[in-house]
Design a protein around this nucleic acid. Structure first.
Lengths: 128, 128
DNA sequence: TCGAATAGGGTTAAATTATTCCCATATTGC
DNA sequence: GCAATATGGGAATAATTTAACCCTATTCGA
């Protein structure tokens, strides 16, 4: 049966030519890097993550957590208790990504002023 | 006058809380990392870049190059000749990003097999 | 004179991602 | 019994990003 269960079926396949494409594919997603970061910091439960990232809806966080899990960057442990308790952890694969994210974040921190400036300038230009 | 000239006016403002958000904002765009990479490698002219990235249309490349320029990561030099000649170069700011992209790409290369595997697995799951 | 090469913008359509709202479960405390 | 807690999925819609297609301009070479 070809019932897609409302999961989106991609029509354009991703490019996977080089390392940069590959890492882009698993990190592309508005909240993924933050999720990995906060999980690494020890905020493992969905409700905690939600509190750390209040701008995202619970729904998107779930979806992106599912993707991270499908890409084997995090594992999900469900405790059979009520009310339910769930904990995400980084896999070894996920952990190996943390130093990379550190480098990214460091460059962002080092250039914070400049970045804010150019981003705001462009935003204002867009909206006139 | 509030004529938007068909540039999209954002309704949801980006998050700019930390370094990771900031760098994400300037690198978010399907072809931007590749553009920076190839420009750094010396492929400066739009037609060269187009040949290096045949999957993107000329249009998107132009748009993303404009954004990179607006974010002061690249500069554009127009030679007053016919047929027109244009060259993009990294700014100092753009150059400072290259080591960061190297780290990303390196991780991607180091984990190529694994990444291909998890990405393909997920794609297949999506499309059933 | 026609076609290729070079560069780039306007407009619309499609694809993708994110938001919103609603529903369901089961226990604890009031 | 009812609200709160904790987790998560379905469906529809909004927002955003990319793709597709068309048009402009000039010069060189066949």
């Amino acid at each position: 049966m070809d019932y897609i269960c409302f999961m989106y079926e991609r029509k354009i396949l991703p490019n996977l030519n080089c390392g940069l494409d590959l890492i882009g594919e698993v990190l592309y997603g508005k909240w993924k890097i933050r999720l990995l970061w906060f999980i690494n910091e020890g905020h493992k439960r969905p409700s905690e993550l939600q509190r750390k990232i209040p701008d995202a809806t619970r729904r998107v966080l779930n979806i992106q957590l599912n993707e991270l899990e499908a890409h084997d960057l995090v594992t999900k442990k469900i405790y059979p208790v009520v009310p339910p308790k769930v904990e995400y952890s980084l896999t070894e694969f996920g952990k190996s990504l943390i130093p990379v994210l550190s480098v990214l974040g460091q460059w962002g921190d080092d250039n914070e002023e400049k970045l804010r400036s150019v981003i705001m300038k462009r935003l204002n230009a867009e909206n006139e």
